[in-house]
Each structure stands twice: as C-alpha cells, then as structure tokens.
C-alpha cells in the first residue's frame, strides 16, 4: 500500500518535470505531430500512468528467481500451462497497478496542468482495448526476457537492455511521432510502441482505432508465440538437465 503510494508519488513528480519539457517544445512548435498543447501534456501523464502496469522498468514476473532456485520445475508440472498461468497473474497485477499507481499521476496532471479525457465512450473503449493488448505485449516481451535467464550466466545485461528499449522505444520518454526520420519509422514499427505510444494515441483519439489494435494484436501474437517456443525449450532443458 505505502509502496504503491510512494511509486505513484514518484511517477507524478516525473510526470510534472517531463510535462514542462513537452510544454516548452509545443510552445516552440504548436501542433507538432498532430498534438495540441493539451494533448502533449495529456500524453505525458497517460504514459506516466502506464509505467507501473506495463512494468516498463522491467521485472514483475518473479520467474528469474524461480529459475535460479530451481522452483521452475514445480511450475512446469502444474496442470495450468506456465505461460498462460503467468499471463493471468500479470494481467491481474497490471489492472491493480493501473488503479493505484496509474490514476494518481493522471489526477495530479489534471490538477496541475489540466488534461483531457477520452472524447466519448467509443474513444474510451478503444483505449481500454488498447490497454489490455498493451499489457499482453508487455507481458510477452518480459516473459521472453525472464526466460532468457535459463541460457545466460548473467541476466542483468538483458534486464538493462530491456529497460532501455522499453523506456526509450515505447514512447515513454518522448512521443515516438517526434523522433526524426527513419528512427521514427523504425520505433513506430517495433513492439515497444504497442506498449505505450499506441494506447496513449487511442486515449487521445490521435490514431485510427482498428489499425492500431491490429498492430498491437500482431505483436502480442508474435511475442506470445515466441514465448510458447521458449517454454517448450525450457521444459526440455529442465527435463534433461534437471534444472
């Protein structure tokens, strides 16, 4: 409870600091990337709210510890498939974290600067759908990162790499739309965009709904598929080598 409040506080402070950068930029370039000033500020606080549910700083799955301790063998013999089981757990946690750590920064943003709400029920529903898919994509990625412990001596490297990718290429630090040229095109096509940029655009009504959801669904399927293969590989490894 206190930990969640502390996290919400920190997310809010960073939200305010980042908002000022975007305000300064949008004052210099009104209407940049199709956002007006209020959109830019709203973008900042919505993305700040997504940090905790998307676990953008990494972790949240507890799998690496279980792999290192060998407890993963117990998970693999459970009747529920490991990947599905972990996904269910993660989705529940994401919903909780969105409420306790996501909403406070948005309230703070609304109080300090004023932010917009989704225009109408349709846009709100699109955002919720995008949010759910974003959680699945984020899970798919972190599941792969977590299982990589199996094949690596030192998993800190992958964790840090994942941190860089999911904070910078997700649109958390800046909207991907203002990334210059080819970097922008690349960032918009990568799975991390589906975690933050796409749901936030759905919130703002700044992107077409169906193609956005399709983009997220594509990456969800790809990452979950790779995750299923990784699960099979790890099962094989545990059975042969005994963990």
């Amino acid at each position: 409870m206190w930990a969640a409040l502390a996290g919400a506080f920190t997310n809010s402070v960073f939200g305010i600091l980042r908002a000022y950068i975007l305000i300064a930029l949008w004052q210099a370039r009104p209407g940049l990337a199709g956002y007006d000033l209020t959109d830019a500020v709203t973008y900042c606080f919505v993305t700040q709210a997504l940090i905790a549910p998307m676990q953008l700083f990494g972790g949240g799955l507890g799998l690496p510890e279980r792999i290192r301790s060998g407890d993963i063998a117990l998970d693999l013999v459970r009747p529920a498939p490991l990947q599905l089981w972990t996904l269910a757990e993660d989705t529940g946690r994401a919903a909780y974290l969105f409420l306790v750590r996501g909403l406070p920064p948005m309230v703070v943003g609304a109080a300090v600067f004023g932010i917009t709400l989704p225009a109408g029920a349709g846009q709100g529903a699109a955002f919720l759908a995008g949010l759910v898919l974003a959680v699945v994509v984020s899970f798919g990625w972190r599941y792969l990162v977590a299982l990589s412990v199996c094949w690596l001596v030192d998993d800190r490297g992958v964790a840090v790499l994942s941190l860089v990718l999911s904070t910078f290429f997700s649109g958390l630090m800046l909207p991907l739309r203002i990334f210059p040229g080819a970097l922008g095109d690349l960032a918009a096509a990568l799975p991390w965009a589906a975690m933050v940029q796409v749901p936030t655009d759905l919130y703002l009504g700044a992107a077409p709904v169906l193609p956005s959801l399709a983009f997220q669904a594509f990456w969800a399927v790809v990452l979950l598929g790779l995750g299923a293969l990784a699960t099979r590989a790890i099962r094989h490894k545990v059975m042969i080598q005994g963990g």
Binding site: A28, V164, M173, L174
Partner: peptide
Amino acid sequence: LSLAVAATDLAVILVVFANTTSL
C-alpha cells in the same frame, strides 16, 4: 549498457532539438 541507459537522457534532448532550434 549502463552507458546506454545514461545516453537515453541525451537522446531525448537531441530528439527535442531535431524538432526545434530553441527551447
């Protein structure tokens, strides 16, 4: 990698100035 983490802050500044000449 720790260098890469620090470099993202720098990258943000550079991206901002890819869009404007003055902040």
